[in-house]
Amino acid sequence: MSVSKFMSKNVISLNQDQTVEEAAKIMIEKNIGGLPIVDSTGKLVGMITESDFIGQKVDVPHALVSLTRLLGQTHHKGSVEEIFEKAKSSKLSEVMSTNVDTISSSADLSEASSIMLAQNVSRLPVCDDGNLVGIITKRDILKSFSK
C-alpha cells in the first residue's frame, strides 16, 4: 500500500517568518502535533513539533549535567516560562528542525513506518520533488489496518 492512499493531503503548513506563538496557537486549535515549514515556493524547509515545546535532552560529551533544548535554546535548570516568553516572538526559522526526514508519496507504508521507528518520529512530511504534498502519521498507518 502506498503512502499516497493514507497520507493527509490538506496539510496545514507555516512559513519560516511566522512566529512560535502562531505555531503554538494553530497546533492547539487544530489539535495537531507538528507543522511543516515551507518556503514561498512550497518547498519543505523545516518542521516544528510538540517535542520542540516540551524539550529534548541534549547529550553533551563529558558533561556532568544534562541539558535541555527547548524552542531553539539550550538551558540547564532555567525557567521554562522564561524561555517560552522569550521564544513567543521568535521566527520559526530560528527554532525549527531543518534536518527533516521525508518520504515520497509513491513509497510503501512499510518504508514510512520503518523511517518513523528508526528516527523516533510520529509524522513524516510527504514530498515529491522537494514540494510538500502531504503528511503521514502513525495514526494514518494505523488506519491502514482497518481497511
Results as ranks from 00 to 15, higher is better:
S8R: 06
K9R: 14
N10F: 07
V11K: 01
I12V: 15
L14E: 11
N15S: 13
N15E: 13
Q16M: 12
D17W: 12
Q18E: 15
T19H: 02
A23D: 04
K25A: 07
M27C: 09
I32Y: 04
I37W: 00
V38N: 03
V38W: 02
V38E: 06
T41G: 11
T41H: 10
G42K: 00
G42W: 04
K43T: 13
L44I: 12
T49C: 01
T49G: 00
S51G: 15
F53A: 02
G55M: 03
V58D: 11
V60H: 02
V60S: 08
P61S: 08
P61E: 08
L67N: 01
T68N: 07
L70P: 03
K77Q: 15
K77W: 08
E82W: 00
I83L: 07
E85P: 00
S89W: 05
S89F: 03
K91F: 07
S97P: 08
T98L: 08
T98S: 09
N99P: 01
V100C: 08
V100S: 00
D101P: 12
D101N: 15
D101M: 14
T102H: 10
S104K: 03
S104A: 15
A107K: 05
D108I: 06
A112P: 04
A112G: 05
S114L: 11
I115L: 04
I115S: 06
M116N: 00
M116G: 07
M116F: 06
L117G: 13
Q119V: 11
V126A: 03
D128I: 07
D129P: 11
N131C: 12
